[in-house]
Amino acid sequence: MTNIKIREIEMYHPKNKVGNEYYIEHFKKEQGDDLTHFLEDICGRNTRYIIDNEEENSVTMGIEAAKKVLKKANLSAKELDMIIFASQVPEFVFPTNAVALHHALNAGNHTGILDINANCSGLTTGLDQASRNLLANPNMKRVLLVGSDAASLVMNPQDTITYPNFGDVAVALILEKTEEETGFIDSMYYTESSDFDKVTFPKNGLSKNLHGRGVVDYVQWLPFPGDVSIEKATIMIEELIHRNNLSTQDIKAYCLSQFSIQNIELLRDNLGLKDEQMVYVGDKYGYTGTTSPLLAMYEGIQDGRIKRGDTVLFWTVGIGWQLIAVLFKY
């Protein structure tokens, strides 16, 4: 039986490491607010990596992560059947960002390219869609999947929610067909679009900005309940697990959205999970948007919490909002 496995996974982040102290002092000075409790106890932040130069961006970070994972897998880019690039802060609208990766990696003429944007759920959606594409296409064997967000580029220095929360990171993984009893298991989506206009960039849409009726500057983040998706997430995760004849305790690692440690704790309690099943890296990297759950997996592999043969559940939420959960046997 043909399965789809994660052959290798790698990541890249800029060198500039910024601690909570910078943001606490920034907002004390600018607004008189002390964000210590918010950052440490609700968001679970400590440090994050932020681009501090004009050379790095989502594409350059993606290229570096891709080079690392190809080297780790001992592969040439010419052995790839497709390159998929996921970002909510793409460097280009024209051309695709994936074609920039294709060029930098010297991939082959028969390597397909594709950009996707599902906001923060983008890379997890890419994991699902790439796996299903590989299963369906007998002529495809291997996909390079890259997620990268230079989120700091569009976060408002006056906004206490976004500015101190996000970090800049790229994650790259190689998906390939195998006859091993491992890999992609199943996925599930849930979309509730009533809040589609709460977080926008450009604020009033691209057309109005280009016609001079707005300014493309920072993400607009209007108030909405921070735990709005947790109840639905609990239901969909339980359904996904049970329809695959598993229990919540059969899942070795839960690699969830790293937006807030508080949300992860709510899901832990709702699902009756143990602390050791939850992988949290938002204290180290901040919230990295599209890469968030796969970054958690990378760290879990690095520190030995996730090993070959372990069943992993990915879950995250994109603004609007769109939920996705994916079951995978690593």
Rank of each mutant, 00 (worst) to 15 (best):
K78M: 12
K78W: 05
D81E: 13
M82S: 07
I84S: 04
I84E: 08
F85S: 06
F85G: 10
S87Y: 00
S87V: 07
Q88L: 07
V89F: 06
F92N: 14
F92Y: 12
V93G: 13
P95H: 15
P95L: 12
T96Q: 13
A98F: 01
V99Y: 15
A100W: 10
H102A: 09
H102V: 15
A104R: 07
A104M: 09
A104V: 14
L105C: 09
N106E: 05
G108L: 12
G108D: 11
N109F: 15
H110E: 12
H110N: 15
T111W: 11
G112I: 13
G112V: 08
I113F: 09
L114R: 06
D115H: 06
D115Q: 01
I116L: 08
I116H: 00
C120P: 00
C120M: 09
S121H: 03
S121I: 04
G122H: 00
G122D: 02
L123C: 05
G126N: 02
G126A: 02
Q129H: 04
A130I: 02
A130H: 02
S131P: 01
S131E: 02
S131H: 04
L134F: 15
L134S: 10
P138Y: 01
M140K: 15
M140S: 11
V143T: 05
V143Y: 10
V143L: 02
L144N: 01
L144F: 14
L144R: 06
L145P: 14
L145N: 11
V146K: 03
G147L: 02
S148C: 03
D149P: 15
A150N: 13
A151I: 08
L153D: 10
L153M: 07
M155P: 14
N156P: 12
P157T: 15
P157R: 00
Q158L: 14
Q158F: 13
T160H: 12
T160Y: 15
I161H: 13
T162N: 11
T162D: 13
P164A: 10
F166A: 03
F166N: 02
G167A: 10
G167K: 15
G167F: 12
D168M: 01
V169G: 03
V169C: 01
A170P: 01
V171N: 04
A172C: 03
L173M: 08
I174H: 06
L175P: 04
T178Y: 07
E180N: 11
E181P: 02
T182G: 04
T182L: 02
F184R: 05
I185V: 06
I185W: 05
Y189Q: 05
Y190W: 02
Y190N: 05
S193R: 06
S194G: 03
D195E: 10
D195S: 07
D195A: 07
F196G: 10
F196D: 10
D197P: 05
V199E: 11
F201C: 04
K203A: 14
G205C: 05
L206F: 13
L206H: 08
S207M: 11
S207W: 08
S207R: 09
K208T: 13
K208E: 03
N209D: 06
N209M: 10
L210T: 13
H211F: 11
G212F: 06
G212D: 09
